[in-house]
Computed example of a mutant assay.
Amino acid sequence: MFFGIFSTVLIACGLLPQYYEIYKYKEVIGISLLFMTIDALGGVFNDLSLAFKGDFDVIAGVTYSLVVVLDGGILLLALILNPLARRRRKRLAAESTAVPDAEAPAPSLGYDFGPGALEEVGGEKSSNVDNKKGEVEIETKDV
Rank of each mutant, 00 (worst) to 15 (best):
T97R: 07
D130I: 09
A51M: 13
R87Q: 14
E120N: 13
I59L: 05
G73C: 06
S7Y: 04
F35G: 00
F45P: 07
L79S: 02
A60W: 01
V58H: 11
V62D: 04
L15C: 01
I11N: 12
I74W: 12
G116R: 06
V99F: 03
R88T: 09
T37I: 06
V69D: 09
L84T: 03
K24W: 04
L118Y: 13
E119P: 00
P83W: 04
V136G: 06
L15E: 00
K133Y: 07
K53S: 15
P115E: 10
C13K: 01
I5W: 04
D71Y: 00
V143P: 15
A117F: 09
N128Y: 07
D39M: 02
D142L: 15
L84D: 02
F45A: 06
V129M: 01
T8S: 10
L34M: 12
D142R: 14
F3L: 09
K90S: 11
V99T: 15
A117V: 07
R86T: 15
V121A: 12
L41C: 13
I11C: 07
P115S: 12
S126E: 13
I80P: 01
G110T: 14
V28N: 04
D101N: 15
L10M: 13
N82C: 06
V99Q: 14
L109C: 00
T97D: 04
F52S: 10
G4V: 03
G43R: 08
A78P: 09
P105H: 08
G43N: 03
A106T: 09
A40W: 01
A117S: 14
A98K: 09
G122I: 04
Y20P: 03
D142I: 14
Y19H: 10
E124Q: 15
A40R: 08
L92K: 02
L76H: 03
A85L: 01
T63F: 02
G122Q: 05
A93N: 15
I38S: 06
G110P: 04
E103W: 02
Y19D: 08
L50G: 08
V44A: 00
I31G: 10
F6Q: 12
D57C: 08
A78F: 11
A104H: 00
Y19R: 03
D71A: 11
A104R: 05
L92R: 13
F113P: 15
P107E: 14
G54D: 10
F6M: 13
G110F: 01
E119L: 11
L70N: 08
D39N: 12
A104Q: 14
K24N: 05
K53N: 13
D71E: 10
G73S: 13
P17H: 01
L50N: 11
R87C: 04
G72L: 08
K132M: 06
G72E: 11
L118M: 14
L79Q: 05
V129S: 03
M1I: 07
G43P: 05
N128H: 09
V67S: 09
